[in-house]
Design a protein around this nucleic acid. Structure first.
Lengths: 206, 206
DNA sequence: CTCTGTGAAACACTTCACAGCG
DNA sequence: CGCTGTGAAGTGTTTCACAGAG
């Protein structure tokens, strides 16, 4: 039996979770979920089938149970530690994002190179020196790192994190990061998104 | 001849553009680009082939020409107007992002519901009332809208924009948006990204 | 010889359509 | 009867491997 879930399905699981959080009735059918998320009912059923049998034929999926199944599949049984690298504008804004705890994450550190920033606090998190990253990572303090550095620094920081055993990176710096092997990198870049949208503006439904 | 470009390729074009911007030599081979972006050389060639013949066998792609081809394919011949809906924390931060002009976009308006905010300015952009959106959109002032509203407001704003003929939305609100037909929506959500990364933290290389 | 551009094969993902459970 | 779960078909994407241009 292959226990792994297709990448495309993994990318949709958070969407189901989000929808289920706002769902009021105790059970939801694949049609309900499809309707609410804008996906096909067949796709919803296929996706959820990877989590193991979770529904009741003739009824649908028990919402509370399905939520738990998705959280377990995503590895969100307990809080997951997240480090923010870079305490500039963006890093500080991210540190202030209130939804971390509620969604199963906790900020375990905010790091910066600038000695003038180190020691001060943003949104209740003391800023630590970047040199502390390897030790904190090795200690298992955090499992995911958010890169909020200037683009020039991103490559060096990536290597430092990879060497320290961190395998999950969320990159906000507008630069191409070559993922070291075994490391999963997700890029979130405003310009990239706008450029993609620009294509579909001219050529709808490509 | 089918002139349309596969979605997966469109999503990678900005990455090529970013890489080419930092490339110093006058010509780049598919191996160079693959090396720099972390993709396969065959994929680079296939992607670029959708732009029409652009390379020289035995040499590679002329960087300046290739950049122009990609920009044209993305519909970025002249500046594209972008509206920011919602002048809260996030909306203000986005309005301050300096890279818009350089990347071919220009902010044509920042809109908010709150009468107390309307009239004041953020980063040089006067905040307009949300009621102005339909008229401004109809006038062709902007072609892409960035949603930076609270999640409760996102659905209503989406409908308003769709009715006004806007077909490209970048949604930063952490909520599920059902795209009206013909409208391309891209979601950028921190929690979603972290949840996906959490999966690969537990199960590398899925 | 180097490197592009592309048929063809391989792979991944989505959708259809329906057997069969509750 | 309503709905799940899934073979099988359909579609989209990636990779291989090489003919042929420069």
């Amino acid at each position: 039996v292959d226990r792994s879930i297709p990448r495309a399905t993994v990318a949709r699981l958070p969407r189901y979770l989000q929808y289920l959080n706002e769902f009021s009735r105790p059970t939801a059918s694949s049609d309900d979920i499809a309707e609410g998320t804008g996906l096909q009912a067949a796709q919803v059923r296929r996706d959820l089938s990877y989590l193991g049998p979770g529904g009741t034929r003739g009824v649908g999926y028990e919402v509370a149970r399905l939520r738990a199944l998705i959280l377990r599949a995503l590895g969100l049984l307990g809080p997951v530690g997240v480090a923010i690298i870079g305490a500039g504008n963006l890093g500080q804004a991210l540190a202030g994002y209130g939804g971390f705890h509620e969604r199963g994450f906790s900020i375990t550190g905010v790091y910066d190179v600038d000695p003038k920033k180190v020691g001060s606090a943003v949104h209740g998190h003391r800023i630590k020196p970047i040199e502390d990253v390897p030790a904190d990572a090795a200690e298992g303090l955090f499992a995911i790192a958010i890169l909020a550095t200037p683009p020039e620094a991103a490559a060096a920081v990536t290597n430092m994190l990879a060497a320290a055993g961190i395998r999950s990176l969320l990159n906000f710096a507008p630069t191409v990061i070559r993922a070291p092997s075994g490391v999963e990198v997700r890029n979130v870049d405003l310009s990239t998104e706008l450029q993609i949208l620009s294509y579909y503006r001219v050529r709808p439904k490509g």
